[in-house]
Design a protein around this nucleic acid. Sequence first.
DNA 1: TTTTAGATAGTAAGTGACCACTATCTTCTC
DNA 2: GAGAAGATAGTGGTCACTTACTATCTAAAA
Lengths: 199, 199
Amino acid sequence: MTSRTKNKTAEQRRLETVETLIDLAGEQNPNAITTQALADKMGLTQGAIFRHFPTKESIFSGVMGWVAERLMKHIHKAIKSEDSAIDKLQSMFLAHISFVSKHPGIPRILFGELQHDKNSVPKQMVKQLIAQYADLLQDIMRTGKERGELNPNLDIEAATLLFIGSIQGLVMQSMLAADRQDMLAQAEAVFNVYRQSLL
Amino acid sequence: MTSRTKNKTAEQRRLETVETLIDLAGEQNPNAITTQALADKMGLTQGAIFRHFPTKESIFSGVMGWVAERLMKHIHKAIKSEDSAIDKLQSMFLAHISFVSKHPGIPRILFGELQHDKNSVPKQMVKQLIAQYADLLQDIMRTGKERGELNPNLDIEAATLLFIGSIQGLVMQSMLAADRQDMLAQAEAVFNVYRQSLL
DNA sequence: TTTTAGATAGTAAGTGACCACTATCTTCTC
DNA sequence: GAGAAGATAGTGGTCACTTACTATCTAAAA
C-alpha cells in the first residue's frame, strides 16, 4: 500500500461518507451518485465504502438521520427566542431556508426519496421527518390562535401545507436558477406574503 | 412473425410512447423507468422504441412538449370565463390541480428533470414551461392590481412563487399519502388560505 | 384489379459500459 | 499479533442502444 494517511475510525468514516453524499447531491442528481463517485471524493477505493455501510441505501438512511437531527435542532433553537406565533413561524421559515441554502443537496435527496415507489427505510424516515415538522407548525399555530395572534378562522392544516409548499417553491426556484445567493432575500419577501394569510 | 395486429404509424407510436411513460411515472420513479418496461406496457419489444426515438432522453422531451401544450390549454380555458383576478387565480389553481391529479406522473417527471445537473433538452423545456406559467400569473396579478382587486402593495414575484409552491405542496402531500382522492378538496382549502395573502 | 417494389414498423439477439456488492489479500493501529 | 481499515480485482446483473433480419403497408405500374 502506498497510502501515507492514517486510517480513520468507523464512526468518523460513516459521518464523512454521509456528509460527502450531501455535498455531491448539491451538484448532481442524488439518485445518480455512484458509490465510486463517493469513494473518489473521499480518497478511497469504491469497495472501502462497503466496510462501513452494508448497502448504498443505508447511506441514504444515514443522511436522513443526519438531517432529522440537525435540521430540527437548528429550528428549535431559532424559535426558542421568539415569543409570538408569527415571529416563531418567521424564524422557523428563515432558519429552514438558511439551512437548505447551506446544504443544497438535502432537499434534492429528500425529493429523490419521495419519488421511489416502495417504502424504503430512508423514504419512511423522510415521511416521519415531515410529519414531525408539520406537527411543530400546527402546535405553533394552535397556540397562536388561542392567544388571539392568528385569525381564529385559519385553516391550520391548509396553512401548514402552504408553509411547507412555499419552502419547496423557494428550493425549486434555486434549482432553476442554480443561484442560491438571493434565496434568503427572496425568503423574506415570500414570508411577508405568507404572513398575510395568517391574519 | 406471429403478430396479428397492424403496425401503427410513427406519429401514433410517438404519442402512445409519451402517454405510456406518463402513465408509468404515476406508479414509480420516472428516472427508474426502463425502455424495457415502457415496451412491455406497449406490447412491443424494447428495440422497437428506438425506431421512434433516437434516445431515451428524447422521450422525456416528448413528454414535456405534451405537457406544455395540454396544461397551458387546459388552464387558459379555465380562466377565460372568469372576470376578476381572484377568480382567475382560483380557476387556474383548481384547473392545475385537477390536471395533475388526472396525470400524477407529470409532476414527478418534472421534478425528476429539475434534479439533473446538466442542462438537458427536457430540463430546458421544464424551465421554459415554468417561466411561461409564472408570466401568466404575473399578468393576472398586475391587471388585478390596476383594477383595485388585489392589495396594491402585493409583492407579485413573491406571490407567484407562493402560488407555485402551494401546488408543489399539494403534490408532495399526495406523494406522501399515495392518495390522490382528496387532493381537489384540499386544494380548495389551500387556495382559501392563499387568497388571504392577496388582499 | 392485380402485381410488385420501396419504405417503414417491428423482432431477435446481441454489445459494451456501468454499477452495487463481494472475496481475498495487505497494511495499519493498538 | 489480533482486529479493523483499506486495496485489488473480480462478478453478476442491468440498461441504453445497435445490427441484421422480417413482416407489413402504400402506391404506382401493369
